[in-house]
Design a protein around this nucleic acid. Structure first.
Length: 588
RNA sequence: GCUGGCGUAGCUCAGUCGGUAGAGCAGCUGAUUUGUAAUCAGCCGGUCGGGGGUUCGAAUCCCUUCGCCAGCUCCA
């Protein structure tokens, strides 16, 4: 037995796990006949899945939480007991807990005894569990139930539907309150809210999952699109545009007709089945095959930003992070086997550079050969070794997801975290040996013979939509100057200053800055407030003094009143900040 | 797609037991000419998401449908 103290790293996990047991105890007390599934601790808290007669409603949460507090206050002993396996199986079977019986059968095959945890001996709750747990329920104080939702037994959508109750718990009430406050703060940074408030984009019920980019959002989007071109062209990429709608024959060749059709928008035209493209790769295979390719042409890097459509299930659509129409900063690099490691290393460095420019944190993970795979084991081993080598050389920290690769090749994915802690895959680097084969692609080698290229599917932003969502949530809409849709707003104090303000506006615009004029008859306080709420980086106040001196009074969103400066100096300052991408922490 | 919740003016929201739909902000008009986070007044604005039903009468109750939100499954 080991004593885990409050400052041990596993303490929080233990505490949450024990709170999950407390939750299950409360639910089984309040709703007799409830079957328990599993109830683990998570990164953010804990949950427990139940089979209940009717789904939980929000009012149930209050009752359950009240019951949990009651049991906690009773300070009942959590005790680990080793039961003979037969006895445990009989116990849970008799209790009407077939899911627990199933778990015990699966997880303790060949054992004589199984570990169970009780609360107040068998009076309140018994769970099949190895623990560890708190010594008694009185230790549990700082917890809160947050949501109920639907889940499936063992995550199988065809399987037993269950009700999941989720909550969070901390070692102290102070930490719990801090966490709840963080969640509230995160709501204010939600890209759906910020995007609406700042006039970046909108949606309409007649095009669910498809973004209407408003003018300011389009500006931002175009900055990203052009930024990516500026990054990729020097790295040897060329840009192409391929069709949005293809004959079924293409999708049959690529294999998507068989495996992905249910997620595609299908169209019929003159008796022919057509499919809107859900990815660019098949089209790029045709581009590669459109001419004779020499080994001297490799790597051939085809970049494309045109829109894709995926008919995602309605229930998964979420703001900009999960949509039906989106564009990737997609590219396919056609390489020889020997070029894989170098190409991936170059890619990793591009990813690092881009995420640094945008000030986003990410986590890389390498996914290796899955159980179901195509091709030779030796090829896979070489590919995985190439990826590891590239990761090492690029100095990229990563974790490994064994067996999580695509059936056609291993991959490296990059996750970025949103305002409420959800992780979204953005950048991805995927090796593919299959598609070039399906399209019978080849290049002429130095030996004058035909060889099969390897293709690397890769995206750095991932999709513009998702990337912008994460950019918004990480900056709260207070974009650095180079990304701000409106970089400066000129604020004349009175009508007599409007002429001068227009001159200032024109000079900034001529210098290539995105500038607006607020010539309304409002007090300057009011104009500043609106510009500030609009997250505009610079406010240029002009009144009698500035007009007389050829100056502007500069106010920065982050730093407040910076004093008067000549217009040219102001322009230069802004241009410098744009050029350096303001690589300082983004503040509000 | 599944389970639950939600849908009232451009935005944020109120609307009791079923009894003639409200506020603030925004917008418009007028006054005000303003120096670093909200000047004042007036006015305009809603088939209460859509459709159907119950009722003398529905924002309110029921059915259905669409959308949104949380989670699940699936994915960039």
């Amino acid at each position: 037995m080991k004593i885990v103290t409050g400052d041990a790293p596993e303490a929080l996990h233990l505490y949450r796990h024990s709170t999950a047991h407390l939750l299950a105890a409360a639910v089984t007390q309040l709703f007799p006949g409830t079957q328990c599934g599993i109830g683990p601790a998570t990164d953010e808290g804990f949950f427990y899945d139940f089979v209940v007669e009717r789904p939980f409603v929000p009012e149930d949460l209050e009752r359950i939480e009240a019951k949990m507090r009651e049991i906690a206050q009773g300070d009942f002993v959590y005790e680990r007991q080793m039961w003979p396996r037969d006895e445990a199986l009989a116990f849970f079977a008799q209790r009407g807990e077939p899911l627990k019986v199933q778990l015990i059968e699966e997880k303790t095959a060949g054992q004589d005894t199984v570990s169970v945890y009780t609360i107040k001996d068998r009076d309140l709750f018994v769970d099949f569990c190895v623990g560890p747990h708190v010594p008694s329920s009185g230790k549990l104080k700082a917890f809160k139930l947050l949501t109920t939702s639907n889940a499936y037994w063992k995550g199988d959508a065809q399987g037993q539907p269950m009700q999941r109750v989720s909550g969070t718990a901390f070692l102290s009430d102070k930490e719990l309150q801090a966490h709840l406050t963080r969640l509230e703060e995160a709501k204010k940074r939600d890209h759906r809210k910020v995007g609406k408030d700042l006039g970046l984009f909108t949606f309409h019920p007649w095009a669910p999952g498809a973004t209407f980019w408003l003018d300011k959002g389009t500006t931002l989007y175009n900055i990203l699109a052009n930024y990516m071109r500026e990054v990729l062209f020097p790295a040897g990429y060329v840009e192409v545009k391929t069709p949005l709608v293809f004959n079924k024959a293409l999708w049959e060749t690529s294999g998507h007709w068989e495996h992905y059709r249910q997620n595609m928008f299908l169209i019929e035209a003159e008796g022919e089945q057509m499919g809107m493209k859900a990815m660019n790769c098949p089209g790029h295979m045709l581009v590669f095959g459109s001419g004779v390719r020499s080994y001297r042409d490799l790597p051939l890097r085809l970049h494309e930003q045109t829109p894709l459509h995926r008919n995602e299930a309605s229930g998964v659509l979420t703001g900009l992070t999960r949509v039906r129409q989106f564009s990737q900063d997609d590219a396919h690099c056609f390489v020889t086997e020997d070029q894989i490691a170098d190409e991936v290393e170059q890619l990793l460095k591009l990813v690092q550079r881009v995420y640094r420019d945008f000030g986003l944190e990410y986590a890389a993970k390498l996914s290796t050969r899955p159980a179901q795979f195509l091709g030779e084991v030796a090829t896979w081993d070489h590919a995985e070794a190439s990826l590891r080598q590239a990761l090492e050389r690029a100095g990229q920290a990563y974790t490994v997801n064994e067996g999580d690769g695509a059936f056609y090749g291993p991959k490296i994915d990059f996750d970025v975290t949103d305002a409420i802690g959800r992780k979204w895959q953005c950048a991805t680097i995927q090796l593919d040996y299959q598609l070039p084969q399906r399209f019978d692609l080849h290049y002429i080698g130095a030996d004058n013979a035909q060889h099969r290229p390897v293709v690397i599917h890769r995206a750095i932003f991932g999709s513009f939509e998702r990337f912008i969502a994460l950019l918004i949530e990480n900056s709260a809409g207070a974009f650095p100057l180079w990304l701000a849709p409106v970089q400066a707003r000129v604020l004349p104090i009175a009508d007599r200053h409007v002429d001068y303000a227009q001159q200032v506006e024109a000079r900034l615009a001529a210098a290539g800055l995105r500038v607006e004029l607020d010539a309304r008859q409002e007090k300057v306080n009011y104009k500043i407030r609106e510009a500030q709420l609009g997250k505009i980086p610079y406010m240029l106040v002009v009144g009698d003094r500035e007009a007389a001196e050829g100056q502007v009074a500069v106010r920065s969103r982050a730093g407040g009143d910076l004093g008067a400066t000549p217009v040219d100096a102001c322009i230069q300052r802004l241009l410098d900040e744009v050029a350096t991408k303001g690589l300082v922490p983004v503040t509000q």
